[in-house]
Design a binder for these strands. Structure first.
Lengths: 294, 294
DNA sequence: ACCAAGTATCACCGATCGCGATCGTCGCGA
DNA sequence: TCGCGACGATCGCGATCGGTGATACTTGGT
């Protein structure tokens, strides 16, 4: 068993496709097929149940996968540790981010990190399934760190460091009955049609929790993955929305109203695993993030 | 970087000699030399400072070594996990034991383990530096489990499960002034010449602690690594000793006396690491050990 | 100065790996 | 039912890798 074989196996398991795994690994498909076959022969067990249409893990493969990731992470940490001693950090840092990274000034943070550690490749990925998806990816070792928004108690295996927060304001079309008000309550907007992010996104969790805590409900009739388009949807009368002020670049045709008597604070945090040590590059980014805090 | 290279590097680091490492790995010396050189080239750092007389770790090598062990352990756990799913446990379990294994009936325990898991190779090693040395080896990932005797608070990274204990009795030559007594106190034997195990052994720690707790001292003039020879030394007038009864197979010429008013309980425990998960085979042995408890 | 022990280098050879071509399989749509 | 596209497995080939055995070089002790 060698790391190269584990790397190929993990790629196939994650992609559920030899051809895509080969592309990701920058080798031809037959090389991946052969390597996985050799690993199976060496371990004396079938790891993948596959045909021309479908690739699934066997029980043995399911047992191997998390441990293969641990071994690959350990090897990368080993490489990073040597690089740190010998002459600067090396390696790749896999970072998950929410789509609304402007809450955090991430470009400035990551830019500074890159200037300080040019040998580290930053591989950022946005969260197709919101912050909850990032948390899952962190737990499954597909990410090293994640910038998330996760109201409530985080899961036991994740540590959150709060970084920034913004209040969500109500955005209504300027001809809306509530538009003349300076502030409203949740009761004023209960039952109305809302535009919001999908379930799983942090801002969506904040708004859902607020309504639930007040024993009220609303209708989310349109889900948008990018809050920067929220004001546009509001402007065209598709509903009202709770958005941070920074997401409303152009406020013509809409009004922003405060919502009184409720916690609509949307907090962004850095999520790190607690069940394993993080690598040298991850530690460096965590330190830099702390420097960026006010 | 591959596991094979890490394995060769770890072997050289531990043996401090390429030729001995090669013997341990069952390859020729030049294969080890070439593999380490390739690893150094790939990492862009010198890992070992060596010449024909001496092999030492560099700073980069010192940074790599614990992480290399983690990666190798992870790979072995991966292999074991697949074997467990697929058809029984495989692999090697590295067990440290005190020399005085009769306190524990280890042969019976390990015999039963072997019958249940014939695919697991048990590699046992005794403790040249006593239980403390076993604890060090466990922390440094050179052992998976250890049977130790460690009075007092164990270090934070080790978990102890008490398994058995025996009281240490005073053994004197039968013409000794105390020989007519049924029991003595520590005060009676303070200042006398003792035969005992070396520092680091569990039984030695028990006796040293008892004298220290009583504010008394004694002279340990002969240190013996095997307590089974203790009574023989006493018989020949080389000193007196505190030994468990089971270690005195032949009591002619000596008397065994109780020592009142002091804790001379010598406890044997199973030491497991707390900072990392143990492999499948280790978990199986831990379970079997629990079954063997009364 | 000599020697023994150990590491590094070299030539050689068999094994391994990745590539490119191709075969076989499978699910889907007509 | 059939054709098709996509995908995994196999094969031949060339390049590279890894281990062996021999040997050169180095080093510390006598």
């Amino acid at each position: 068993m060698e790391l190269r074989q584990l790397e190929y196996f993990v790629a196939v398991a994650e992609e559920q496709n030899f051809t895509r795994a080969a592309a990701r690994l920058h080798v031809v498909q037959s090389a991946v097929s052969a390597a996985v076959k050799t690993l199976e022969r060496e371990l004396g067990a079938s790891l993948l149940d596959r045909n021309s249409k479908r690739v699934r893990l066997t029980d043995a493969g399911a047992a191997l996968l998390p441990r293969a990731r641990i071994a690959l992470d350990a090897a990368r940490d080993a490489r990073d540790a040597v690089a740190e001693v010998h002459g600067g950090l090396r390696g790749t840092l896999r970072i998950g981010t929410m789509t609304s990274i402007r809450l955090l000034h991430l470009p400035a943070l990551l830019g500074e990190f890159h200037r300080r550690h040019p040998g580290v490749l930053l591989h950022t990925s946005v969260a197709p399934h919101g912050s909850q998806g990032l948390i899952d990816a962190l737990a499954e070792r597909r990410l090293d760190l994640a910038f998330v928004s996760l109201p409530g108690t985080p899961p036991a295996e994740i540590h959150l460091t709060d970084l920034a927060s913004s209040v969500l304001d109500l955005v209504v079309p300027d001809d809306h009955p509530l538009a003349t008000r300076e502030a409203v309550t949740l009761a004023d907007i209960a039952g109305l049609d809302f535009i919001d992010s999908p379930v799983g996104y942090g801002n969506r969790a904040v708004t859902d929790r607020a309504f639930a805590a007040a024993g009220l409900s609303r209708r989310v009739t349109i889900e948008i993955p990018d809050i920067a388009t929220g004001a546009e949807h509001v402007r065209h009368g598709l509903g009202i929305a709770l958005l941070p002020r920074f997401a409303v670049a152009d406020d013509h045709g809409v009004r922003l109203l405060s919502v009184a008597g409720v916690d609509l604070n949307w907090t962004a945090s850095l999520a790190t695993p607690v069940d394993r040590p993080v690598g040298a590059a991850a530690r460096a980014l965590i330190s830099l993030t702390a420097e960026f805090l006010p």
